[in-house]
Computed example of a mutant assay.
Amino acid sequence: MKKTLIIAIAGILTFSCSKKESQKTDNNSDSTKTVDSINEARTKINDSIKALNSKNRFRDFSGSHKFVYQNDSSPKYSGSINFTKIEGERDNYTLSGDIKSGKNSVILKGFVQVLSPKSMNFTGEITQSISENDNGKSYTRKGTKTFMSKDGGKTYRLQDMVNGSGFVDYIDIHF
């Protein structure tokens, strides 16, 4: 009788153990599927957030625009300037442009961050060589400079207006 009872208990334990193992394998594959679907949903959410964070708050300035230099003793010089949107960033552009007229030149190169519909910060270099200023001596403005608009965003003017000769320069970007 004891032998039969021991055999019966061993059979029950063997049967119940093998059943649990098969259930455990099914749970692992189900949990893997669940984790994968959660990761897929998170990726979609993160992609939509990234797209929203790279969308401009202000208008798009991308493209080529008119770039103008003038001071009290010189005629107006015109050139072009190109705004290239930095991919994945909000209201940030690389900027490069120049004005060349004979021996006179103004070159802008750097980075622009639009702060409001009427204000943008430029970080980079503005190099100018104007014959009416110290006989064409080169003058470079470096660092962060502000461009402001007083006409609703049609024209932005550099606010650091005094050049190396002590004269006022008007450096404008027209949109």
Rank of each mutant, 00 (worst) to 15 (best):
Y69Q: 00
I81C: 09
F111R: 10
D26K: 06
F15I: 15
Q159A: 10
S78K: 00
N27E: 14
S74D: 04
E132F: 01
S62L: 05
D160I: 00
D60T: 06
F15T: 15
G79E: 06
S31Q: 13
S73H: 01
H174I: 06
I86E: 13
R157Y: 01
H174Y: 05
N104E: 01
D26R: 02
Y93D: 10
D36R: 08
I12N: 14
Y139R: 02
K3S: 14
F167V: 00
Q23C: 00
D151M: 02
K19Y: 11
A8W: 13
C17Q: 07
M148W: 00
I49L: 15
S48Y: 06
E40T: 15
V162D: 06
G102K: 05
K2T: 12
D30Q: 11
V35N: 05
N135I: 03
S129Q: 08
D151F: 01
K142T: 14
S22R: 01
S96C: 01
G110W: 04
G97E: 07
S29Y: 08
E89M: 13
K103E: 12
I126A: 08
S31W: 08
K109W: 01
S105T: 14
M161T: 15
M1R: 09
N27D: 11
G136S: 02
K24A: 12
S165M: 02
A51N: 11
V168T: 13
S31T: 12
D30F: 08
N71I: 04
I107E: 14
S54G: 15
R57P: 04
F122H: 05
F111N: 14
K2F: 12
P75A: 01
D98C: 06
D160M: 03
I38Q: 12
G97Y: 06
Y139V: 08
G164I: 02
D98P: 05
I45P: 09
T43E: 14
K33M: 13
D47V: 05
I45C: 05
T146S: 14
G11M: 15
K3F: 13
S105A: 09
N121Y: 09
I107S: 14
S165C: 03
D30E: 12
Y170N: 13
